[in-house]
Amino acid sequence: MRDDSARWNAPSSLDYASDDLSVIEVTLPSQIWVSGTDVLQIYKDKLVSWPDIVAAQNYALALRRDRLLLVGAAQPLSGFNIQQGHATSDVSDAYKVIDISGKRAFDRLRHGAELNLDKPSASVMRRAFGVDVLLYRVGTDARFRLHVPRALMQSVFQQLIS
């Protein structure tokens, strides 16, 4: 038994701004995992991979050959749809989401992940700052959106802004 409360910084806000780096927390209407053999095909019009730039409010992040993350879609109940052969889970709160911009944005991200804008990837999944995250761009070519498993966001955020 040891009280380690003081050893660990209390979670802080995920907003940060300096001259060359800005981080803001984003609340997305919904995040939903959809798995199935044909999901990449079914959602191909909305599909986002690396290094795409998202413009829509409603899109589908390609994760792996049989899985994507629907962002902004209406929330179906979690479960398995036997007609479609799709498995669905609401994970709207499983990821915390931040947008990173500013001159140092890409450089800061490269402190935690091997990133190359010239090399496309079929998936937005990345290992960054030691954590499995989702990374892509939104709006402009210099604004990055990062989905981080909620429980580890503090660590990623602190490393990102340090």
């Binding site: 040891r2 580890l152 602190q158």
Partner: peptide
């Protein structure tokens, strides 16, 4: 704290406010 960071509870700050001894 970043050597194998701990996972954080959604309610961590609530617990802190209640005087929790975290470990």
């Amino acid at each position: 704290q970043n050597w194998h960071p701990l996972k954080r509870l959604p309610l961590e700050n609530t617990h802190r406010a209640m005087g929790a001894a975290l470990g």
